[in-house]
Amino acid sequence: MDSLRRYASIIDDFDAFIAASERPLSHTVRVQTSRVSVDRVVDAFEEAAIGCSPLSWRESIIELDIDRPGLTLPAFLGWVHGQEVVSCLPAPLLDVVPGDVIWDACAAPGSKTGHLIDLIEDVGTVVATDDNLGRLSALRYNLERLGATAAIVERADARRFDPSPMGIEAFDASLVDAPCTGEGTVRKKPSALDDWSLGHVESLGNVQRGILRRAIELTKPGGVVLYSTCTYAPEENEAVVDAILDDGGCDIEPIELPFETAPGIDSWEGTAFDHRLTRARRIYPHHADTGGFFIAKLRVAT
């Protein structure tokens, strides 16, 4: 947890933040509601005497009292996907509807792709790219189990992705769930901070900017580009979005989330960011007992 100390000045009640980061995360699944009703999934878990409670603010996320949701009928049937709460936040913010053509730039292993497929009811196209072939095979497995027929999967470095051979000129919306240092995932994976280094944080910043820039280029005017990470480092969050706002091709919009979150910051270690970055959201474990996360919703200029 020592590498998290550098955030003591930007996180309220830092001791509570550290304490929450040390607690394991509860196990949740997301229901593929375009395939099955939440009620039927709850009944199916109850038939197997598995304790389950849909979250009050979004009943399609169900908390389970077991730690291997994969060993249940709803998982085998492709009705649910094991997915933590913060991972269920980005897809609905893309404002997609059935028929849309969407890019999920850093998609593997496909949790958010599956969610996007659900939101468009498997009607339209989600192009899921990732540059890691091994992780792409996990993504294919996950998407096929969820019954996705509206997904196209391709290996690509998102910074240079060209969808024109697919007959696609531009996307209605894009998701950049960027590769990051993963500081916010310690509750799931206590070793997540083991090889943290400032060098790593800074080199990822370049990749993240490259991918986000490409997403802005490939998204139609007026379309949403959602940027998310599961890390706290401002170098990977506000600084990345700041550079993209500076390019001038998009604006950043306020986001409504169903629980307490903190605003993005507008300065870090002497560097000032565009003040609009306070519209981004920082999600801390001690606020709503979740993993850590960062979200910025960008809209491409018309």
């Binding site: 998407l143 096929e144 997904a151 999967v153 697919m166």
Partner: peptide, 9 residues
Amino acid sequence: FEAEGLGMV
């Protein structure tokens, strides 16, 4: 069409 996946098998 060139891709790693196109819908489902």
